[in-house]
Amino acid sequence: MAKVLGMTYTLNTSNPWIYCNYPENVKEEYLGDKGHFINRQSVSAGTGQIFYEHAIPTLTTDLYHGIRIYNGNDSNVTFKVLNYGHANRTSKNKNLESADSWYKFFKEVNAATYTIPAKKSIWICEEKIPAKTGLFTGNLRFNTSASVVIATYIYKNKNSIPDKTTYVPYATTAGESNYKVYSGLGAGYFFTAKQQTLRISQFPSDKVIKFITHARDNTNYTINGTSGTSQHEYIPLKLVSNKNLIAQYKGDTKNDPLHNLGNWCAQYYFPITFNNDTNQDVVIKCRISCKSSATGGYAMPIINCEGTILRNALYITSTPPYWEWKTITIPANTSKNLNYQFILGANSTTNLEHQFILQN
């Protein structure tokens, strides 16, 4: 039987995660031109991240997505874009727009530095969204030298956005198209796992060692010293529409409109050492397996393995699919490191296994 590893994580809870997924399907009345922002958060000096994913499947005119930064201080603020990637769904990327945005985040970076005068605002990361785009998504890591207000908008003309704007009213009735998607603020976005050493002599009889991420029934981990039996892996989100509404895992998968989390586009870093303490060379196959019971949809794993960006789309069938993403040959009596960052792109089905299979 496969050996299942317990994971120990550090989550960067002092860094804000501005999470923008509501409304997922954008209507005319939700636009900035109509007086609505998607998300707006005050953040303190330091580093944070923004994730957004939306769709405009029925709108017949081109739109724009932009991020507005307001400096309410009495002196200038330095605002830095550290990494940024955006992608629209196209016929070429075939639902892999999330992977495309992360490729740009890691490879193109798109870094920039802005000086924001006191009591002024700037617009950054403005992107054209062609009419009827199925999905568009992006990720931005930033650093600010002082507190600022960050707001995201979808609009036709930013000059038509009124001075006073408000949030899009949150859907709370089952059956509404945006019932189970959220925009809000999370505490942290980057899980750093404790280093694991896997000895070849200690592989079980079926030759599989694995660990689990993005699964509701998994409690075999700790985060910042707290056991998975008393918390959950998914990062809670304080909704922008009402800070008293928190999207979080509660175990209710049927009646609770605030349970539908998956840590989509949260980042995980896994440092692993394979110690071949035997007298023969061995081969390890590295796999990502989707174990969801869902009958439709797919999982979109994205891997940054020491600068090499890999991606796939695992389509859900009656037999859970897997993605064999790396093969490692380890000579006798030597060790090799495998350090990789993992992201489950939006939009995906959850319940994943990271499997390491000994071939000989």
Rank of each mutant, 00 (worst) to 15 (best):
S121M: 09
K326R: 15
N275G: 01
N93G: 08
K107P: 00
I200V: 12
P117V: 11
G35K: 06
S91N: 15
Q280I: 15
A151M: 04
K80T: 10
I343L: 09
N360G: 09
L258I: 03
Y64I: 00
F270S: 10
K128C: 02
D163G: 11
G225Y: 07
K291T: 15
T197M: 01
T60Y: 12
G175T: 03
L239I: 07
A112R: 11
G307N: 01
T219A: 10
N39H: 04
Q341T: 13
Q196M: 05
F37I: 06
K194H: 09
M7K: 06
K238W: 09
P257F: 03
N220W: 06
T166R: 15
Q248V: 00
T317Q: 12
Y52D: 02
T60L: 15
Y221M: 07
R68G: 01
A151Y: 00
Y298G: 09
D33R: 06
V240T: 06
N339C: 03
R141S: 12
Q280M: 14
Y249L: 10
Y189K: 07
K254Y: 13
C20A: 14
A99K: 13
I129F: 05
N333P: 08
M300F: 05
N25Y: 07
L358D: 09
T60H: 13
G228K: 08
P130I: 08
